[in-house]
């Protein structure tokens, strides 16, 4: 049960409440379902809703998205068209109105598909009182914004395999950025581990090689050994590993 919900008006106030032991709540779409039963442990929350962290800033090809920007705000921002298929693959309309970019970084798998996309875009998170961090984050903290470079048209790929077309958690999510100049591919995966992961083994196979049926198949085979998906209500671990090569191929080759 909730013992207190603080709604600070700025980041320093939020930081001191967190330091005093309060749990951060963004949109609440991951946290509140766990607190909504009367058996949850006593919890003190600090809501970032009024901390001034929402908003999108675009400067050339660099985009900065405030941590409290909602998935719905991304969906309706024409400057973020790249991310529209990503956010529309997540949950449902009345959940996306609440769910935030910052919160997605901490969503439990097999949720957190926006983070998969952000990892593939090599986005960085800004944390209060610290320097920028690479994604996926390895430690907790109060994220104030994420920053990413928008790649050139056609370089970003995103594919989410789910049980239904709308409003389903991930079976396998693949996001990738293809860097033509360097011959490198950045690949991030969801649904295949207890957190969002970079597919380093697959990237190594594809480095400097053309994207073909053969190379992508070899990349998938190399990555398979590193995948540790969960058995859950959406799919078995066996199934997720079985279909991963198919979805990697579809994401990278479009077929």
């Amino acid at each position: 049960m909730l013992t207190e919900v603080h709604v600070p008006e700025d980041v320093p106030a939020a930081v001191s409440l967190v330091a005093a032991g309060a749990t951060i709540i963004g949109g609440g779409t991951s946290l509140m379902p766990r607190l909504n039963d009367y058996a949850s442990p006593p919890t003190e929350l600090v809501s970032l809703r009024r901390a001034g962290l929402a908003g999108v800033h675009v400067d050339g090809d660099t985009v900065t998205i405030g941590a409290m920007t909602t998935l719905a705000q991304i969906e309706h921002d024409p400057r973020l068209a790249l991310l529209h298929p990503v956010v529309r693959s997540i949950a449902s309309v009345p959940v996306r109105t609440l769910a935030t970019v910052g919160g997605n970084l901490f969503a439990r798998q097999p949720h957190g598909d926006l983070t998969v996309a952000l990892v593939a875009l090599n986005a960085r998170a800004t944390l209060a009182g610290r320097s920028e961090s690479e994604l996926p984050l390895t430690e907790a903290g109060l994220v104030t914004a994420i920053t990413a470079k928008i790649p050139k048209k056609g370089a970003f790929r995103y594919l989410k395999a789910a049980r239904r077309r709308y409003n389903s958690a991930s079976l396998v999510t693949v996001a990738a950025t293809i860097h033509d100049e360097s011959g490198e591919v950045t690949i991030a995966l969801g649904g295949v581990s207890d957190r969002v992961v970079r597919a380093h083994a697959a990237e190594a196979v594809l480095s400097g090689r053309p994207l073909t049926e053969e190379t992508v198949h070899a990349a998938a085979e190399a990555e398979l050994a590193h995948l540790t998906p969960a058995d859950d209500a959406y799919a078995s671990a066996w199934y997720r590993k079985r279909v991963f090569p198919v979805h990697l191929r579809r994401a990278l080759l479009g077929r």
Binding site: V5, G28, T29, S47, A72, T97
Partner: peptide, 24 residues
């Protein structure tokens, strides 16, 4: 937040009101 039966409009946008602490 999964069934949508609590959907209302908050500042004009649909939300699942069961996930929104009122004080926020």
């Amino acid at each position: 937040g999964a069934c949508g039966s609590c959907t209302v409009l908050l500042d004009g946008e649909p939300v699942v009101s069961c996930l929104v602490p009122a004080v926020t």
